[in-house]
Simulated assay, not measured.
Amino acid sequence: MDPTNESAATLPAATAKADATRRTELFIGACVVLISLVSLFVAVSANRTQERLLAASTWPNLQYSSSNANREGKRAISFNLLNNGVGPARIRSFDLRYHGKSMRNSSELLRECCLRDASQTAPTTTVSTVRRRVLAPNEEVTFLRVPLQASTEATWQVLNREAFNVQLRVCYCSVLDDCWMLDTGKPEPEPVKACPATPAGSGWEN
């Protein structure tokens, strides 16, 4: 047999084998890339799931309430904040408003809402610090309490009626620095990027 013819016959077979090898290598490479992409997607999804679980496990939720009697049944108007979430609530700003106007302290609130005559005596009040306070889960703070007293009953009754016109805007954050704004004029607290400053001159933090 002619050696030249034998070499010519084996050349297509060698080329076909090389092509098959390249296709196999390309297929393996594509599989490796695909597996890497799937692994990356799974890792990112797992990380996001863990972030959501962590955020859910530290979620605070502030609720506002008012009442005109304490647990013992004694007549006292109280304004309260309750954290009924599962994580601590770090209060960053506090704005109490009466008919839309910011009240710097309890004295200003009573003057605006209830002291119709300059000769009237303001009732005794108890104020608790709110801003920069951390409320644990299921912890409640009464930031303003006004007990009923015979000498100031008329003013107390006015406040009891006007309590429904008191509005709060309280911004608070979780331990992960996710923040929400509680606006009692809206049904639910809303997420915010950052908390606004407390109005200048506010005495609710003192």
Rank of each mutant, 00 (worst) to 15 (best):
V130D: 15
R131K: 10
R132G: 05
R132A: 05
R133L: 06
R133Y: 09
R133A: 04
V134I: 13
L135S: 08
L135W: 12
A136H: 08
A136N: 10
E139P: 03
E139W: 07
E140A: 14
E140Y: 08
E140L: 05
E140D: 06
V141H: 15
T142G: 11
F143V: 11
F143R: 12
F143T: 10
L144A: 13
L144V: 09
L144E: 06
L144Q: 10
R145K: 13
R145Q: 14
V146H: 11
V146W: 03
V146E: 04
P147W: 06
P147I: 08
L148I: 02
Q149I: 02
Q149V: 03
Q149D: 08
Q149C: 02
S151T: 08
S151K: 01
S151E: 14
T152S: 13
E153V: 07
E153A: 12
E153K: 11
E153R: 09
A154L: 06
A154D: 08
W156G: 06
Q157W: 00
Q157D: 07
V158D: 09
V158R: 15
V158F: 10
V158P: 02
L159K: 07
L159M: 15
R161W: 15
R161L: 14
E162I: 03
N165R: 15
V166K: 15
V166H: 14
Q167L: 08
L168G: 12
R169S: 11
R169Y: 10
R169G: 03
V170P: 14
V170A: 12
V170H: 12
V170I: 14
C171D: 08
Y172D: 04
Y172Q: 07
Y172R: 09
C173S: 15
V175R: 12
L176V: 07
L176R: 08
D178G: 00
D178P: 00
W180L: 00
L182Q: 02
L182G: 01
D183G: 04
D183M: 07
T184Y: 01
T184F: 07
T184K: 09
T184W: 11
T184N: 01
G185D: 05
G185Y: 04
G185T: 08
K186H: 00
K186A: 06
K186L: 07
P187E: 09
P187G: 02
P187W: 06
P187S: 10
P187I: 01
E188I: 01
E188N: 06
E188G: 02
E190A: 09
E190R: 09
P191N: 09
